[in-house]
């Protein structure tokens, strides 16, 4: 059997077929560049994302835009604690400040990819050109999302700094578990971007109020992630949903690394974790393994959802359909 990649022999007396002017064309360029090509597409998308997000305005103005939202979100919770007062609220202050600071990054990551798709389709009307470019569509969109996560990370760091300097959050760099923080941050970022990819798959199909979907989804996940209150106060079923979410494990791991004496958002009296495992709170290795497993499952599901949505959008002509939403 002949090798399908080998061109058929040219019959005697005929010159091989050539497209005029394409003599120097290298067919390998049309086959995709493998991992190297993906990396190039990804880094270019990150640069474009950053340029779209950040390089057009005064740095001070951009700084205000980036930190006002997470700092205000933390202040809302701090005032709620102060209004109630008492020992419980003092105990929870660090808990909520760290949780709401981390949430800034979650929101940016979830919204990043969805808004990139909506912007490219509805505002800049570039999505069809991105789609037909040699770079992988998912890789490019993920790059755009990562740029927004970087902006969110800035908000997280500033909110933590405000918490330490102005709100009395205890921070001792010698007590921080830096290796744990590094591991959960990397795994957490992957998990956050995965949720963003799922939402990207959704907004590829939807119109109308799609711009507000990331906020709505982030708000819903806020409930089951233990960001600002321990999961133990939720009904059992909601706690189980939280335990299946990588974000809950990421927040628990980050909080454990930054504030070793903090209350656990997963375990504790009346928690599903206590009922299911018999232990008061998960150990550090359990947190890392749980984050790894739930994050891997989430990433796989996100990839499948995005590919499926991409196919459907192509079939139905949604990629270049500007809807005015």
């Amino acid at each position: 059997m002949s090798d399908p990649t080998t061109p058929p022999p040219v019959p005697a007396g005929f010159a091989p077929l050539r497209i005029p002017g394409w003599e120097d064309f290298d067919p390998a360029r049309a086959r995709g560049g493998g991992l190297r090509g993906h990396w190039r597409g990804f880094t270019t998308a990150v640069r474009i994302g950053w340029a779209t997000e950040a390089n057009w305005t005064d740095p001070l103005l951009f700084f205000i835009y980036s930190v006002a939202k997470p700092v205000s979100a933390a202040l809302i919770l701090v005032v709620m604690l102060e209004v109630i007062g008492g020992a419980t609220s003092r105990q929870y202050r660090s808990f909520v400040v760290v949780g709401s600071a981390l949430w800034a990054m979650v929101f940016s990551g979830i919204a990043g990819l969805a808004w990139s798709i909506l912007e490219d389709r509805e505002r800049y009307r570039m999505i069809k050109y991105v789609y037909v470019s040699p770079a992988d569509f998912l890789v490019v969109m993920t790059g755009r999302a990562v740029a927004r996560v970087a902006v969110g990370a800035m908000g997280t760091i500033i909110t933590l700094a405000v918490g330490v300097v102005l709100l009395g959050v205890p921070f001792d760099p010698f007590r921080v578990d830096w290796p744990l923080l590094a591991v959960v941050t990397v795994l957490g970022m992957v998990a956050i971007v995965s949720v963003g990819i799922v939402l990207g798959a959704v907004v590829m199909q939807t119109r109308q109020e799609a711009w507000q979907y990331p906020e709505a989804v982030a708000g819903a996940l806020f409930l089951v992630s233990g960001a600002v209150f321990p999961l133990a106060v939720l009904p059992f079923a909601a706690q189980v949903v939280g335990l299946l979410t990588p974000l809950a494990w990421w927040i628990e791991g980050s909080r454990r690394a930054l504030l070793p004496d903090s209350v656990s958002s997963i375990g504790g009296e009346g928690s599903a974790w206590l009922d299911l495992t018999g232990t008061v709170a998960p150990s550090t290795p359990e947190i890392v393994v749980a984050l790894l497993v739930t994050g891997a499952a989430g990433t796989l599901a996100a990839g499948l959802a995005f590919r499926s949505s991409e196919r459907r959008a192509k079939d139905r002509g949604l990629l270049d359909q500007t809807t005015g939403s």
Partner: peptide, 11 residues
Amino acid sequence: AFVFVYRALQA
């Protein structure tokens, strides 16, 4: 989520 914050604080 905010309702549960108050519940956690026994408001």
